[in-house]
């Protein structure tokens, strides 16, 4: 019986998308199904934002001024740095340098934890100012988007811890690192979503 590797056999994407015809798929197909689903989910959030902004332009012009911009900037820099650390971890596993790979993974997970702390502080700060999900349409969209993103950072940080555990067990090498790479592309996707969320909620008036 013919066996097919998982990365090319799920039959979810058209044949023209196969690695043979379109090029290497970073990670594996299942993680890309997850990523495309997440992009759709966040796409719906972004559509909701633009529709709400169309109907309530004044509320959306004032909304960002009520937020703590400094905390938003800090979290953006923290997430960008985490993406950098993840890319460095990938480059080191390709050199079979597990020690440095693990070091960068710890830095990435630290950034994830710092993001969660800063975001929790921001939610607390908001509540001290009297803002909640029901304050107005801007804050409904703000909490809807940012809390969802918060959850993604939370479970992806747990996934980094799992990958560190697997790395220590010797599961990844320069030859086989698809599991680590799958997590890396998922983590970058989370960073990408924040790159879009940040200007929408904190910068644009």
């Amino acid at each position: 019986m013919k066996s097919h590797p998982i990365s090319t056999s799920l039959g979810i994407f058209p044949k023209s998308w196969s690695e043979d015809k379109a090029g290497r798929i970073p990670g594996n197909i299942p993680i890309w199904v997850g990523i495309l689903s997440e992009l759709t989910e966040f796409g719906i959030f972004f559509a909701a934002y633009f529709i709400a902004k169309f109907y309530y332009p004044e509320i959306f012009a004032q909304g960002p001024q009520s937020l703590n911009t400094a905390l938003g900037v800090i979290n953006t820099i923290v997430l960008l740095s985490s993406s950098y650390f993840m890319a460095k971890a990938m480059s080191h596993i390709r050199l079979d340098n597990r020690k440095k790979c693990e070091r960068y993974l710890w830095l990435a997970v630290s950034c994830g934890a710092l993001y969660l702390l800063v975001k929790t502080w921001e939610f607390h700060w908001n509540s001290l100012q009297g803002y909640s999900t029901s304050t107005n349409e801007f804050f409904t969209v703000y909490y809807y988007m940012t809390f969802n993103h918060f959850l993604h950072v939370g479970w992806a940080s747990c996934a980094i811890l799992w990958v560190i555990f697997r790395l220590r067990k010797g599961a990844y090498s320069s030859e086989e690192n698809s599991g680590l790479e799958a997590l890396a592309v998922y983590w970058h996707m989370i960073d990408l979503m924040w790159i879009l969320i940040f200007p929408l909620l904190y910068v644009l008036r």
Binding site: F13, S16, W17, E19, A22, G23, R24, I25, P26, W32, S83, Y84, M86, A87, M90, A184, V185, H188, M189, D191, L192, I195, L196, P199, V203, L204
Partner: peptide
């Protein structure tokens, strides 16, 4: 200006951190 810089930031992460440059062209 902000929209253009967001596009640039996204492209940098997609191409250089996610390493899709030179990988699967459809993705």
């Amino acid at each position: 200006l902000i929209a253009l810089t967001v596009i640039y930031k996204g492209f940098v992460v997609i191409d250089h951190f996610m390493e899709l440059k030179g990988a699967n062209r459809n993705l």
